[in-house]
Amino acid sequence: MIGCLCIHGFTGAPYEVEPLVEFLQEHTDWDFRVPTLPGHGETSSLKGVHYQEWINHAETELKKLIETCDEVYVVGFSMGGMIASYLAANYPVNKLILLSAAAYYMNPRQLVADIKLTLIDAFKGNLKENELFHRYKRKITETPLAATLQFRQLVAFIKPLLKQVEVPTLIAQGECDGIVPLKSAEYLYQTIGAKHKKLTYIKQSKHHICHCEERGALFNQVLDFLMEQ
């Protein structure tokens, strides 16, 4: 049996990786776990949550898969990609998928471009149809500063461990990502210790790479990578 743990991002929820999970479920008979990290989800409450709680929760889910599966894969989106890297460095994970993984964050040039488009839609009265506005309105208005500092501490804690990741790794990054810049994917590719690693760019994708228009091609790349012998 193969197990696959999929980890969402900061202030997010399983919906961020669900399209990929559903695709993999259609093409495999693997055992999937898609946890909601402490303080996250639809009724998020990040106040007072320490970053180690996010790591601990992911560790608990991974251990359950390790106990019952012959092979285990870990997929991480954004902050979840950093947690996935930590797990791959410390546990017997067989393959690692990093999606928009946040070794660095905030791409000022793309973010400005996205804000301009949002303002144009607001001026035209089309804000209700602006997906970007709805995705980030909640993140901006409801995320405590202390939680953002915990996220930054998590990244700082995990970065020195990346060289210990030796399992085959696929890194996917959207070229239009306004949250995680291209240099994040490049840094991960250069720093991760795996001999077998691949970096792929999704041309039109913004940050939520599992929801982009090119997700079909991305999902096939992920499946092919995980099925490689």
Rank of each mutant, 00 (worst) to 15 (best):
L62D: 07
Q150G: 07
A13Y: 01
A172C: 15
E166R: 05
F23W: 11
L188D: 06
G48T: 05
K64T: 01
A146M: 10
L24R: 07
M106H: 10
I158C: 06
K163H: 07
Y136E: 12
Q190F: 00
L87G: 10
T169V: 10
A113T: 13
L117Q: 14
Q150M: 09
P108W: 08
M79I: 05
Y189N: 12
D224R: 09
L145E: 14
T28V: 04
Q25R: 15
F157I: 01
G80H: 06
L119G: 08
V180D: 02
V155N: 03
V21H: 08
E42G: 03
S184N: 04
L117K: 14
I7P: 10
R33S: 15
H196W: 00
Y189D: 08
V17M: 10
P35A: 00
A194H: 00
G80Y: 04
T200R: 10
A147L: 07
V75K: 04
V112C: 01
T118C: 15
L199T: 06
T169S: 11
A185G: 07
V222F: 11
V93Y: 14
W30Y: 12
K128Y: 14
G48P: 09
Y201L: 12
N94F: 06
I97M: 11
H50P: 10
A102G: 13
Q52I: 04
I179H: 02
G3H: 11
S184L: 03
L98K: 10
Y86P: 08
G39E: 07
F77N: 09
K95I: 08
P181G: 02
T68W: 00
S205E: 05
N56G: 15
S100T: 05
A88I: 08
D70V: 02
K159N: 09
E67C: 02
R135T: 09
P181Q: 01
K203E: 13
S78Q: 03
L119R: 11
L226E: 04
N56V: 00
M79D: 03
